Simulated assay, not measured.
Amino acid sequence: MTVRRAWDDLPGAARQEVERTIGTVVKAVSTPGGRNSELSETLWTDSGPVFCKGISTESPISYMHRNEIAVSPYLPADLAPRLRWHFEVGGWLLLGFEHLLGRHADLTPDSSDLPLVADAVTRIGVATVPRTATGEPRRISDQWSRALKREREFPTAPSTDPWTVEHASLLTELADLAPSFMEGSVLIHSDLNPTNFVVSDRAKVVDWAWWQTGAAWFDPAYLVIRLIAEGHDPQSAEKWAQQFEAFTAAPPEAITAFAASAVRLWERRFAHTAATEAARRWAQYRTS
C-alpha cells in the first residue's frame, strides 16, 4: 500500500514539467481507490481534464507504472484510455492519460453493465501482446507460481476461515496445479474488478499494471470471483463466463485449481474481503 500524495506535494520541478506539457493546472482533484500510485489526480487546465498518476522513482513498486507505459501503445483506443505522455523528473515517474467520462462497472445480477463488461473482456483477448524491453514474455504462470511459493512460507494465520483450514491439504494440492494450466500467449489484464472498468456507452479498462500473457480463460475466470462477490451464486457466475469460448473449453480441473489458488493467495493477506470470501465460496462449490 502506497502513501497517497496530492498535486501540491510534488516537487516544483515535477509540477512545472507537467504544466509545460498540458498548461497551467487550475484545479487538482484526487481520485479515490487504487493502491499502487502515490499520486492519482484529475488535473484541470483551460484545455480540459487530464488523469495523472505517479510514483516516486525510488519506490519498490515503480515497475508497475513502467508496466503500464509498456502496454499502453498496444491497447486499442476503444479498450483503454490513451497514455498521452510520461516522464521522470524530480524523483517522480508521472503518467498522463486521457480523461474518461463514466462510472465504475456494476457487476450485480441483472446489471445492464454485464454485456458491456463481456464485450471489453472479448476485446482484451484479441488485443496485440506487447513486446517487453527484454524480449521475454510476462507469463501469468510464472507470477502465479512465485506468489504461491511465497504463501507456502507463511504459517496459517489466526484469521483463516475454518473451511480453509479443514481443506488446507486439498486446496494446496489443487493450487499447485494452477500455474501449469495458465500457459498461453493471449494478453490478459489479470486484475479485472468493478473499479477497473469505466462505463459509458461501452466499457473501457484501466489500470494495466498487472498485464501478463497466458491462457485466454484467465480473465473470464477471474471475473467469476468478482461476480460472486457482487451477489451472483457460483453457478450463475460460471454460466455468465461460459459465453467465452476459452472458459468453456478450459479443462474443468484448470478452473477448479484456479479457484483453489485464489483462496491460497488471498486468505492470509485479505482474509475477510468480499473477493476472498467469493473465491472461497467458488472453491467450495467446485470441490463439493
Rank of each mutant, 00 (worst) to 15 (best):
K204A: 13
D201N: 11
W210R: 15
R139N: 02
R123M: 05
D191L: 02
L223A: 04
W217K: 03
P115T: 02
T164C: 10
L107D: 11
S185Y: 06
W211I: 13
A133R: 15
S169N: 12
W144A: 02
A147K: 07
L100Q: 01
A209T: 11
V126M: 10
T160H: 07
G214Y: 06
Q212S: 12
P130M: 01
I225S: 15
W211Q: 14
E153Q: 14
T122D: 08
F218D: 08
S145D: 13
S111D: 08
A178P: 03
D201F: 01
G184C: 00
W144P: 05
L116Q: 14
D176T: 14
F218I: 09
S141Q: 03
I140M: 03
V198W: 07
T160E: 14
A157S: 05
W208F: 01
D110T: 14
V199A: 00
L93Q: 14
L100A: 02
L148N: 09
L100E: 03
A147V: 03
R226H: 14
E166Q: 15
A127E: 14
T213E: 01
K149E: 15
S190L: 07
G96F: 11
S141I: 02
E173A: 11
S112N: 04
F97W: 15
I140G: 02
P158T: 04
I188D: 06
T108G: 15
P179V: 00
G125T: 10
V126K: 10
L192S: 04
P109F: 12
T156K: 07
K204Y: 13
V129P: 07
F97I: 09
V186L: 05
G135L: 06
A133Q: 08
G125L: 08
S190G: 02
S111F: 08
L101C: 08
F197N: 07
A203C: 03
R146S: 07
W208V: 01
E153T: 15
L223W: 04
R202T: 13
G184I: 05
I188H: 03
R226E: 15
K149Q: 14
P155K: 02
